[in-house]
Design a protein around this nucleic acid. Structure first.
Length: 202
DNA sequence: GTCGAGATCCTC
DNA sequence: AGGATCTCGACG
């Protein structure tokens, strides 16, 4: 079993990587959330890059700056959470100040405190279906809108370096953005090749 | 397994 | 009013 003290949080400098590079480097990293119920963690297995001003699918397209997107205009390495229907989605802010980019975390594989994850997701029968989507993993790990703006280098919400080598990565178009014009087909979705927890396309 | 609809809430 | 989604129930 994975022990928390084995893990080294990514430093603030890690998040200065170009967004498309960061989206790939986050694969195999470990997303950790501490709550009153306990600490749970998942291996990041799927990400999507949102490229700010030039990306019609991004909330910050055309420099759209609102209360919601404000955090994307700041320095990288902070949590951008937002509400999607009945769910909270979690992004890692990327890109330098005034360059509003982010990486959406789409799926994780449970690696620590799986009993807590199972308890939070007990209604879902198949184990993989508990964390294989952006709204599912936030519920499984206990990430909420209260995490908006938190810096990801420390508790209660942080990302640590993975224990294994950089995994083999597959690439394809992003999911769920049919009305983004040209950007709909940009290959800015990344996942660990063959991983069972990658979200399903419908 | 695949499909369609409703949930339900924050943001603009 | 609309959405970077999820779940359940109805098929077959």
């Amino acid at each position: 079993m994975l022990e928390m003290n084995q893990l080294k949080p990514h430093l603030a400098s890690f998040y200065q990587l170009p967004t498309l590079e960061l989206a790939k480097r986050l694969l195999g990293s470990i997303l950790i959330k501490e709550t009153a119920e306990g600490t749970a963690a998942g291996l990041i297995v799927e990400t999507e890059a949102y490229m700010g001003t030039i990306d019609q699918a991004a909330h910050s397209f055309n420099h759209k700056r609102t209360n919601r997107t404000e955090i994307m205009f700041g320095p990288p390495g902070y949590a951008y959470t937002y509400q999607m229907h009945t769910h909270c989605l979690f992004n890692v802010v990327s890109g330098p100040v005034e360059q509003p980019e982010a990486v959406l975390i789409r799926a994780v594989e449970p690696v620590f405190n799986t009993p807590l994850i199972e308890e939070r997701r007990s209604k879902i029968k198949k184990v993989v279906d508990r964390t294989n989507g952006p709204g599912k993993l936030t519920k499984a790990l206990g990430i909420t809108m209260g995490d908006y703006g938190h810096e990801l280098t420390s508790a209660p919400l942080l990302i640590a370096k993975g224990l294994n080598d950089q995994p083999e990565i597959s690439t394809g178009p992003r999911i769920g953005i049919p009305n983004a014009g040209e950007a709909t087909n940009y290959p800015w979705r990344f996942w660990i090749t063959g991983n069972a927890y990658v979200s399903k396309m419908r």
